[in-house]
């Protein structure tokens, strides 16, 4: 006897209603590959590109946040809609609550600063370092950006090297180039 989709959905619905889903998971197709999205009740907590192994990403979040993780895509409907519009070029600024639990204090500062770089423009690692009050800490800034748990929505792709070289990207340089090209239309 197998558990069918209707039973699974009923379970997810009831688990959500009772507040038992600490981390909801969804996936979506995008021009930069399938995205794995995760949200806590506080907000979007993780986006993974498809070069990352799904089981490993879920396992990591289970260890760091909570093992009460379930495929509960509804919680991510608003995020998915905004991402669709972003990839279509019709949305410039995301308006979704973010959960920074997977980020340390310094990285959080860096990423919040990064989130203020306007759509279609770029800043240098040094700019961001100055912005967070550690002008000589651009290397630490690079590390913080590299560990961005919420890429695309927190636009670490907008940080490049002084002089315009593209720098690095956790999701790989082709994706960074694609995103920058999308934004400069």
């Amino acid at each position: 006897m197998t558990v069918d989709l209707a039973m699974t959905n009923r379970f997810i619905e009831r688990a959500e209603a009772k507040g038992l889903v600490d981390v909801a998971v969804a996936t979506m197709d995008s021009p930069v590959g399938t995205l794995l999205l995760m949200a806590t009740p506080r907000g979007l907590v993780r986006i993974a590109f498809d070069h990352e192994n799904r089981d490993e990403v879920l396992g990591d979040v289970a260890t760091r946040l909570s093992p009460r993780i379930l495929d509960a895509p509804r919680r991510l409907d608003a995020v998915r809609r905004q991402l669709d519009r972003y990839f279509a070029g019709t949305l410039r600024d995301f308006d979704v609550p973010l959960d920074w639990s997977l980020t340390g204090e310094f990285a959080r500062k860096v990423l919040r600063r990064t989130a203020r770089i306007p759509y279609g423009s770029v800043a240098s690692y040094a700019d961001v370092a100055v912005g967070v009050g550690t002008p000589r800490g651009y290397r630490a800034v690079g590390n913080a950006l590299g560990s961005n748990p919420i890429p695309v929505v927190v636009p670490c792709h907008r940080v490049v090297r002084t002089g315009g070289a593209i720098g690095g990207y956790g999701g790989g340089l082709p994706r960074k180039r694609w995103l920058l090209a999308l934004e400069t239309g």
């Binding site: 093992p67 379930l70 495929d71």
Partner: peptide, 10 residues
Amino acid sequence: TALPPFQFVF
């Protein structure tokens, strides 16, 4: 014995 995501258990 780290607990796997409940999704896998399900």
